[in-house]
Amino acid sequence: MSSVPSLPRCLCLALPLWLLPLGGAAAPASADLNQAWGALADNRLAEAQRVLGAAPSTRPAQLAWAVAEMTRPPVTEAHRRAAERVFQELARGDDEVGAQAEYLRARLHQLHDVPADETGAAGLYRALAARRPHSHWAQLGLVKLALLELYRRPDPADAAADRLAPAEAALAQIEEPALRRDLHLQIGQAGVALQQPLGRLLPHLVAADRLGGLTSAAREDLIVQIGVLSLRAGQLDQAQAYFARYLQDYPANTRAYTVTQLQEQIRRRRAQESAP
């Protein structure tokens, strides 16, 4: 004979567990929270949750617990849902933790749902940007939202639609230079994929380069790419400048030979143009 016949027994048992992360146990000390975030930075999820305890009470500790829960192996729908419940609750707050939680809700929809719920994610990114436009997480969310819009299918019914315009509009709202750089780069790359005119996409790639800070293959690719696309667009001075920079920075790369041949091509074109 159950005292709560309207609820299934398993739910009765599980309910208190759901509420644990939001419960009222003792708050972990600041040092513990640091230790937990340190463990999370190294992908030691179980250790982070052990440090935080089963029922952290402060908002930052609850966020850390749910962040670990989000990808804790074995990755299950139950873990994902438990994390989302905490994020949803925390997102009501008007602080940095709230912004992070709101951002992470969108990430769950975009990357962790199977199949991905991109429409839901886009809605959450938009809501976050509307509520806290100057938060870093809202700004990062705008970059992610712009990506979703750039590669959205099906294409707009209007064939002449400017595919880059929505992302460019998002650019106007982004204040942080590193995020502006990332979005410029992605607008430029998507411009190529979506076969937009060179005149529309090249300035974005140049802007990404000027903002600086790219590393590894992304930087090398961008320098050679601006050179080649500038050459195709007939902007010979810009092409020459980027090719020279490429050879200076990456003299031993196999692409260096092709770049020297393209420089030769520019010289020949210039000679032809200046011939009487």
């Binding site: 975030w37 340190g38 999370l40 930075a41 992908n43 999820l45 966020l63 850390a64 962040v67 670990a68 989000m70 990808t71 992070q100 992470l104 990430r107 990357l111 870093h136």
Partner: peptide, 8 residues
Amino acid sequence: DVRLMALA
């Protein structure tokens, strides 16, 4: 995403 939150 986990690492990003931790670094922040």
